[in-house]
């Protein structure tokens, strides 16, 4: 069982969350020309890192907020959690 520290609600079990994938992916700016390759990278291509991975989770059975979680994909250790709009240093 993973335990995720929701920045809004505190420590909760993974059963309350749903996964949202890689949080480092940025949607292309819409006010400029976007190439097919940029869309491709945004929609499909993923690094799928082994080790530290910044990812989105939604606290679906709690506050329903999206949050960012820094987790190790090899050990499943969770290092830090952030609010969705928080910048990650």
């Amino acid at each position: 069982m993973l335990y995720i520290n929701c920045p809004h609600c505190g420590m909760r079990s993974q059963n309350e969350f749903s996964y949202g994938g890689d949080a480092s992916v940025k949607r292309p700016e819409l006010n400029k020309e976007v190439s097919d390759q940029e869309w491709d990278n945004f929609v499909y291509n993923r690094k799928s890192l082994r080790g530290k991975h910044l990812e989105l989770w939604q606290h679906i059975s709690g506050c329903r907020q999206w949050i960012k979680v820094e987790r190790d994909t090899a050990t499943h250790e969770i290092f830090r959690t952030f609010k969705a709009d928080e910048e990650v240093a």
Partner: peptide, 13 residues
């Protein structure tokens, strides 16, 4: 299991 993983071992939920 529903999240990126290289662990080769599962989780009970």
């Amino acid at each position: 299991d529903g999240y990126n993983s290289y662990a080769q071992r599962g989780n009970l939920p």
